[in-house]
Computed example of a mutant assay.
Amino acid sequence: MASQPETLSDQPLRFSIPARDARGRLVRLDSVLNEILSAHAYPPLVEKTLAEALVLTALLGTSLKDQGSQLTLQVQTEKGAIRLLACDYKDGALRGYAQFDAATVASLPHDSTLFGIFGTGYLAITFDRAKPASEGGGRYQGIVPLEGSCLSEASQNYFVQSEQIPTFIRAAVDHVDGRCVAGGILAQHLPEGEEGRERLHVRLDHPEWEHVEILAFTVLPEELADPELPLEEIVWRLFHEEDEVRVEQANKLTKGCRCDPAHIRDVIAKFPAEDRAEMADEAGDIVVDCEFCSRRFPVSLASFNN
């Protein structure tokens, strides 16, 4: 099979339908996704769940306009097969990891529901906007119960409950030629005059939104996760009867991990000397593990005496 054209994946696509007061984004993850997943030997069920979460993080993160802004998606439970799932997006860089109980995961079927995987838990989505709060920036976090059949539905519920924005979200995960491929779509209704979270008159039953939602609902999972199908083609298939549909490519996604040896050392240096001594192992190193990239960073205790 011919190698995948690099431009078809890892580059989100924005679209808008002005006459319907709707906008949205599409994303398909391939090379970036497999680079992130390769840091850990995840069981198939965990891999699939994390892949979906990374798609959702990319869909939400690409809404951020200001350099330095960050989107974080986190799922946490107490007794689930997956105890913690954390992903974030910043300036086009995507990262994520999952903590899980291997024995519990092994006992679950591959098509387990959201409740089967996580049990009772919550979904937290945090927007850290680089602008100060006085200019519409600052930090905003929404937390909702983990409800629905999958993470996509839980994220959709987040926008309805926490943001009061009519929203449609779907994601799909598949394997192609031995690699994991995942894609997703997000569509939202934003009545004319809205900007960010300063909403005017949002109606979940608005006729323009119902029209867009019905069309978006026809997207197929195999379309979202097909590495050979351009995202522009999906937009055309869904909305080609509209008078005007605008599309714009966002910046290409990269695998991001902000674990920097110099930064780690600077953080450790802020601790009192006696605390650093307690952190050190028998070899005299303070070892810091990065959950995202699965790397270990040893910092010599003796280096703080220089």
Score class of each variant (00 low, 15 high):
D30E: 13
D30L: 10
S31M: 00
V32R: 11
V32S: 13
V32Q: 13
V32D: 14
V32G: 11
N34D: 12
E35G: 15
E35P: 00
I36L: 15
L37F: 08
L37V: 10
L37Q: 10
S38F: 05
S38V: 08
A39S: 14
H40V: 01
H40S: 03
A41E: 13
A41L: 05
A41Y: 00
A41S: 14
Y42Q: 07
Y42A: 07
P44V: 09
P44N: 08
L45Q: 09
V46A: 09
E47Y: 00
K48E: 11
A51V: 03
E52T: 02
E52F: 03
L54E: 03
L54P: 07
L54I: 01
L56D: 08
L56R: 07
A58M: 10
L59M: 09
G61D: 10
G61V: 02
S63K: 11
S63W: 02
S63A: 13
S63E: 13
L64E: 15
L64Y: 01
L64C: 05
L64G: 06
L64P: 05
L64W: 06
K65F: 04
D66G: 02
D66E: 15
D66S: 12
Q67Y: 14
G68Y: 03
G68H: 05
G68E: 03
S69G: 02
S69W: 01
S69E: 01
S69A: 03
L71E: 09
L71P: 01
T72E: 08
T72L: 03
L73K: 01
L73M: 06
Q74L: 15
V75P: 00
V75A: 08
Q76A: 12
Q76S: 10
T77N: 12
E78D: 15
K79M: 13
K79N: 15
G80L: 10
A81V: 11
A81I: 09
I82R: 14
I82P: 11
L84G: 00
L84E: 13
L84P: 00
L85P: 08
L85Y: 02
C87I: 05
D88Q: 11
Y89A: 04
G92C: 09
G92Q: 11
A93R: 15
A93W: 04
